[in-house]
Design a protein around this nucleic acid. Sequence first.
DNA 1: TCGACTGACTCAGAAAATTAGCG
DNA 2: CCGCTAATTTTCTGAGTCAGTCG
Length: 360
Amino acid sequence: MTNDEKNTITNLSKCDFTQMSQYFKAQSEARKQMSKEEKLKIKEENEKLLKEYGFCVMDNHRERIANFKIEPPGLFRGRGNHPKMGMLKRRIMPEDIIINCSKDAKVPSPPPGHKWKEVRHDNKVTWLVSWTENIQGSIKYIMLNPSSRIKGEKDWQKYETARRLKKCVDKIRNQYREDWKSKEMKVRQRAVALYFIDKVGAADENVPAKILSYNRANRAVAILCNHQRAPPKTFEKSMMNLQSKIDAKKDQLADARRDLKSAKADAKVMKDAKTKKVVESKKKAVQRLEEQLMKLEVQATDREENKQIALGTSKLNYLDPRITVAWCKKWGVPIEKIYNKTQREKFAWAIDMTDEDYEF
DNA sequence: TCGACTGACTCAGAAAATTAGCG
DNA sequence: CCGCTAATTTTCTGAGTCAGTCG
């Protein structure tokens, strides 16, 4: 706000923001209404941008850059009850930008009519670009993607440290065995969580059930670390949908079972090949439905338990990926069921180096 | 000598974008 | 196969942590 505006506007709750709100709603509506062609065009443009600006060469390797787009200006949205919420985050200009590259590199040229704040050659740090942000005066960086060598090695080191700390684990275990008996709910939960991390064995289970138990272990870690999320806005609704799917499946299964029964009765009387075949196919149908039902029920359990828990962080930052990889190999769970594409890229080092005997 | 500050980096989770799955 | 909704993935950027420095 200008000084003049500051004098006029003393209380935001007396301001009418509906025009602004409507503008942004219209914008997002327009985005939704875009035709397939328009969307495709934008996608292609983004890919071109990524191709041109999304990579760098570090130690002779072409590496993906994480946040290669500068943060656009806008209203600062601090988390929680932030005193600076709503302040204007100003546009970053080339004159704010420090470029960090090697001495012999070709320095990227600033936009016409502008120059960089500084170009330096510091190989003791990993960032490529930095600038100072105007809200808190803190420094922001452009760095490499988690799949890059430099990040991967750091991650690996982190888990090696954890592994060294394992020396103390006996003490911790004895403690949680004690805590188990604790009357205090919290302490008990923590103990169970630790037990889970320790023992994600899932013998004699099919893949969906194994994945459930993996998620449970993942969740135990998330709970332990207090990774909470706001329950999704559509949670209740989607839960109800799932429940009705389950009910429908149950009905189908009951029907299929009835069919099977009568087919069996027919076969008993007729004793011919044709009716026998019918029995077989009905059996298959029942089996298939049973499997589908179980999958749905597992899904419901998983989702309910996950209502307020954010799994991402613990999966991405706390669980040694080698444990996961080894576990997948040991129990024949495809790694794609646990890690998506990005995650597989980030944990490529672990996927490469781990066999099923890996012990943390 | 020590505590406050700062730079560099990891962690965190909401929002946006994309994809899957269903009728 | 199409359009819609829900689920999943990706993007984005603020928060937290830690070690080194400086007064």
